[in-house]
Design a protein around this nucleic acid. Structure first.
Lengths: 134, 134
DNA sequence: ATACGATCTGTAGTCGCTACAGGATCAAGG
DNA sequence: CCTTGATCCTGTAGCGACTACAGATCGTAT
């Protein structure tokens, strides 16, 4: 039960100190007890909890989604359905973004390729951007 | 040279009225002349210019990049090199994002799949998020 | 002339943080 | 015990790229 300061929590979790305080403010992590002087005091469980939130954010879950998952992931673990639902929805979003980016990637790469070809009629990139048709 | 109001420009370009004014404020499009009463008056060339900016933004170019391209794409068209450079850099960013999302997609989809399997040990999604190892 | 829609400016909100400023607190050394 | 220096506190403002008002004015059709 070694007490952990916010700075140490930051080092251990890889989450910025300001971000930890921010996560507390917006309800992504719980409010820890304080010292006499008002400094936050954490323990091991907080390291895990923060890691959880961090990982979820890295995977692109919104703060709302993370909050929802946390609420579901309480004492009763029977709510797997709802967690799964959130994850499936998010997976859909991710796939959508990948598709969008893939389209962009194709367009950009073929355009840039035309650029490097010796002949320089005009700027193919600018031409491409000018094609208002879509 | 039919005069175009900001509302009509919005309809034709598919860009929100507020966003058009915002683009003007941040220097992505030029300031149009005004009527006596102060209403903005556009022409066809503004429709094309706005379309250009819109398309570039849809492709994920930042405002700074768009401004840079616009500056380069002036009267002298010999600056194709620099435009290409911006596009290549941006292409790199796009590919990076795709790679990140692909990793996320794989992790999410395999996790969710384990969920749907009949056996329900715990919530695989939560388990996955709890694995602090990476 | 007047009503009504469109436009004007300016400010504030969104999301997810990050970066201060100006203090207070804590732990270690003298 | 007292000072130093690192860490911590709160609160506010900034980022990018818009979006959404509020409250006023303009333009035009009847």
């Amino acid at each position: 039960m070694a007490d952990i300061t916010i700075g140490e929590l930051s080092r251990r979790s890889g989450v910025n100190v300001e971000t930890i305080r921010y996560f507390e403010k917006v309800g992504l992590i719980e409010k820890p007890p304080r010292t006499e002087g008002g400094h936050r005091v954490y323990g091991e469980r907080n390291v895990r909890a923060l890691g959880f939130v961090k990982r979820a954010r890295e995977l692109g879950f919104t703060q709302d989604e993370v909050r929802a998952i946390l609420k579901l992931g309480g004492p009763d673990t029977a709510c797997c359905d709802q967690v799964r639902e959130i994850a499936v929805h998010h997976l859909g979003q991710v796939r959508g973004k990948i598709a969008d980016l893939a389209r962009i990637e194709r367009l950009l790469s073929t355009t840039v390729e035309r650029c490097s070809g010796g002949h320089v009629p005009q700027c193919p990139v600018i031409d491409m951007l000018e094609e208002t048709v879509r």
